[in-house]
Nucleic acid binder design. Structure first.
Lengths: 310, 310
DNA sequence: CTGAAAGCGCTTACAG
DNA sequence: CTGAAAGCGCTTACAG
């Protein structure tokens, strides 16, 4: 009856509920877990440098969204860090040890791919955020449409009259980094010029460094598309120091629409990633996977948000 | 024997270990939890606005530190968000329902005090980060020495020749906000002037707004002590717009030594909070509390980090 | 010291 | 449909 039962008279039901309330009866989760051999929890597995966790708000946003979505089903989120070798070993033990029913894989870099392979091989259901390079056919994932997002931004810059559009890429061992560059390349077509491309790693500092190199290599640039907002904000700083007015001299576009984008100086034009939907979809796919359904990939469009940097 | 046993011959031990390895034996955590009536996990309870979670790196740093420290003891961290009423109800059910052995309480505001009271009344061991206003005598906690940290900063500003030192306070319903203001007040002594005090809420935007008000109310100020780095960075922005050179015209000091402090323009002088130690101490106290020891309070000194904003 | 048995509190297949 | 019993895989108190 505690499970809902089939049909119980309203009186009986309320009597039981009252009794439950009165005696403060609570189900013992450990007994239930043992009987059902379910952990009733899910891991949020971060295989990312710890630095980025503090700096890049995306991780926290994703975590928050996942926790919120799971809470609806009374499933707690267990945080598992796997930033280095030792942590990865521990994390593997933990995850394959029956402590959780599934894994939300939040890693962008492909360096951890042995680790991901192990997780996958263990048979524990997993869903990745972003395309898990090397596992795109085996692992379910939810990704923003990075390619078309980048194209939209570059097209917008060109349509607002920019001609020499540079780009600061993300790390190229991530699908996001690769696809945003690919979108830029496709949209630039014959306007593409190696001097207009500098690599970053998604950090603000790397954006600033890349911007300096771009001003060296292509002083005639009149726009920059940074593969995320943090790098765009680093670029903004360098442009100001260099005396280039944004947006008059140089238009700057970012990616993510992270919390800092609206309050940067000037506020940043960017591609909004629908993080709420991404985390909700990840949870949905993972729950399906736990119920035995196969992997699936979901791609979610991004949206151009025009502010004052372009 | 799996528990270590008393004395087993090395041969027998290695034989068993080999067998364990070979058959891939793993203890079933649910059976163990049921038998011992321990959850073997700990909650990281965030009763903070979700906005701050993404924006303020302190939460992520604390979480990371706690997860890292707990991992040493093979105790996973369960993330529990309790930002609004509904989440708090759910969180209470979860925490008092035996899902975790203890709680790391990461809330600064005292608004959630009913909630904290319930948690405390339920008897689940808990340790707070920062002094839990209204519960300082009942709950264990680990706090930075906010009062003396603030005094150190203000004294330093004065000793470098600043005379009209303003402050941007944190939220005054938090112990950190209160104590950093109190430290400022004590150190200013007769130099204290209401016109030099503006309230913020730890966000960058609130720091910027407070700075604007300060420039109105006390245009002769020559230094600002912001109660955290994010507000200091907001102040930096406003000072630049107002044409006040930092540090020549105005010295700016922050608090936290958060990731953004070293890369702000100019890099920020600040009081370093030893977050690693704070999270490690929280875990230590909580583990003790779980073993039945009483509450304890730990205060950890902060350290002046001089950069280019003063 | 050792080993068999009871017990933790659920779920579920099964006898009635 | 209902209710008693077995079983989940550990830990631990207890008999030997």
């Amino acid at each position: 009856m505690l499970n809902g039962g089939h049909w119980v008279s309203p009186d009986a039901l309320s009597a039981v509920n009252a009794a439950i309330k009165k005696t403060g009866y609570r189900i013992n989760p450990h007994a239930r877990n043992l009987a059902t051999s379910r952990a009733n929890s899910v891991a949020f597995l971060l295989t990312e440098s710890h630095e980025m966790l503090f700096t890049d708000p995306n991780f926290a946003i994703l975590m928050r969204g996942a926790a919120h979505e799971l809470a609806k089903h009374d499933v707690p989120l267990v945080l598992v860090m796997a930033g280095d070798e030792a942590e990865q070993r521990r994390a593997k033990q933990f995850i394959t040890g029956g402590h959780v029913d599934g894994v939300l894989l939040v890693s962008s870099h492909s360096e951890g791919s042995n680790f991901i392979a192990d997780i996958h091989a263990s048979g524990v259901p997993a869903v990745a955020s972003g395309i898990p390079l090397g596992f795109e056919n085996r692992l379910g994932y939810v990704a923003a449409d990075d390619l078309n997002g980048a194209r939209t931004m570059v097209r917008y810059l060109r349509e607002s009259g920019r001609r020499r559009i540079a780009t600061i890429t993300g790390p190229l061992d991530t699908s996001g980094g690769q696809l945003r560059l690919e979108g830029y390349r496709l949209e630039m077509a014959e306007g593409f010029d190696d001097a207009l491309v500098e690599r970053g790693d998604y950090s603000t500092a790397s954006g600033a460094r890349a911007m300096r190199r771009l001003l060296e290599a292509a002083p005639d640039l009149d726009a920059v598309f940074a593969a995320n907002d943090m790098m765009a904000i680093g670029a903004l700083e360098v442009l100001r120091e260099a005396g280039r007015d944004v947006p008059r001299d140089v238009g700057v576009g970012g990616f993510d629409d992270s919390p800092g984008a609206a309050t940067s100086v000037p506020p940043l034009t960017t591609m909004r990633q629908p993080f709420e939907r991404i985390s909700a979809e990840m949870v949905r796919l993972l729950r399906q996977a736990i119920e035995g359904e196969g992997a699936a990939a979901v791609t979610i469009p991004t949206e151009l948000v025009i502010r004052e940097s372009t």
